[in-house]
Nucleic acid binder design. Sequence first.
DNA 1: TCTGGGGTCCTAGGACCC
DNA 2: TCTGGGGTCCTAGGACCC
Length: 339
Amino acid sequence: MTERHILRIHFHLPDTSDADVYERLVEQLHGISPRTQALPPADADCDVTGALRYYGRTPYELAQLIQLRALALYGIATTIGSAGNRMLAAMAADATAPGGISHLDNSPEAIAGFLRPRPIGALYGVGPATANLLARHGLHTIGTAADTPPGTLQRLLGKTHGRLLHERARGIDDRSVVPQATARSCSADHVFDRDELDPDRHRQALLGLTEHLGTILRTERQIVRRLTLTVRYADRTATVRTRTLTEPTHHTAALTRAAYDIYATLGLQRARVRGIALRAEDLQPAERATTQLTFDPGDDKRRRIEAAADKARARFGPAAVIPATTAIPGTPGPCRSYE
DNA sequence: TCTGGGGTCCTAGGACCC
DNA sequence: TCTGGGGTCCTAGGACCC
């Protein structure tokens, strides 16, 4: 593989900043290299391999240019790590003082010098649980993990994690920067004003969520194959249930039936519910939908109403049509996630 | 610096089929 | 006819990133 040059950019966004400031900053990066992947809410990865030649600059100089632009145009400070792959760039950024730039040379010596002395928990993919487990086996630094045979790591962590840990401890990370990644999932949630015990109000909230998700999915021409319901309780615990749909869909009626179904399997008895979230997972292009075999005339009518409502929303805005039964203050917040 | 929550990936185990 | 191993699909839950 030819040598790559990756930047991890962290924007120091004030809490009060507009949501679209971040989007405009990412747009700026696109101008420097189209191979830019947004990592909301405040980061981005930028593959500048091709941009180096175009601009005739080193990675460090490009990082300076990015810092200058963000500061001059938006008054936003940035911290940037520069390295030969995404993991090293992210780790370099982590090890950099706010507002600084770190460039990690791509030589094996420089990479080993950077990685080996660091605590194992500093490695990408190693959280507190894994770090603890490894420490119990005497592996405290990234260097010791790099020297451990892959088979040993795999016995400790499982096949995939063991292999990845061994590669990463040696500075290897093949993940590419994926611009414009398509959404993997899409979710909506509802928080009750006070802990809610009434199942009717739970279902009412669910209806608002399926209505909302259905609208997003139809707008984006996607269908969903899996639904996950999360119910949060007053004691801060939660129940999570996933259901694979018999047929991928983006129709609100089908989503509502599935959501009510999952809700019913919980068998809640006077549970103090704080909030309900619904996630549409395993999204696919709507063109892939199999032919609808349902000839329920009620469904057909609901879909015509749904199509009319979508049109009204497109013309007059999202609040134009709201199901009469969803008398819920506040609109559920959409949340798109990108890989 | 710490915390929390949303999103993603992985694994284990069960059900089912061949 | 019975058994068992290997796929595949699905769900719950754990772990991690940000």
